[in-house]
Amino acid sequence: MDQVKEIFLRKNRCMGCHSCELACAVAHSASKNMYEAMGEVPLPKNRVYVEAVSENLPIPVLCRHCEDAPCMHACIAGAIRRMEDHSLFTDADKCIGCWTCVMVCPYGVIGRHLDAQKAYRCDRCPDLEEPACVSACPTKALVYQSVTTFSKDKRRHAAEELSRGEGK
């Protein structure tokens, strides 16, 4: 069986262009078309957020779909459940808008839809081959890989550094 893929960040690659945010909102719009999405009511929402740690260190942050998810444990309405693909899903019909998930989320990546009064988050774009934010990233800072692959790449990179005697 294929290993579950996660959205990982290669943080030194992020240029802070916010393209992931745009693509995310378009992927969650009614039209799926950027030009039309800009005029939709309500406006579609992005679920990835590029935060600036300092002036020139942008970091995209999004739902990690935690295995031991505080939001799922804390949700009093039982609206949050784990899907077959291991992603977390907030069922809008069950969500009562108590924002407990927002309170307990260690990453602050659960949004509040003001019109609908429902919580929303990254769903890893289940209808797409890879999440829209990953496809939109011009520098491939965001990747969609299994933990195994991502770690293997990191180890290989570390090994290269070590072999040159330049390991940090």
Binding site: S19, V26, A136
Partner: peptide, 29 residues
């Protein structure tokens, strides 16, 4: 591809050195 949506829609400005600026058409940016 993909090309930058901010440039595509004209929401990017590099006319001064305080920039570049871009306007968020969707989120709370």
């Amino acid at each position: 591809l993909p090309q930058c949506g901010f440039g595509d829609t004209g929401l990017c400005c590099r006319h001064c050195l305080q920039g570049p600026c871009r306007i968020d058409p969707f989120g709370d940016g």
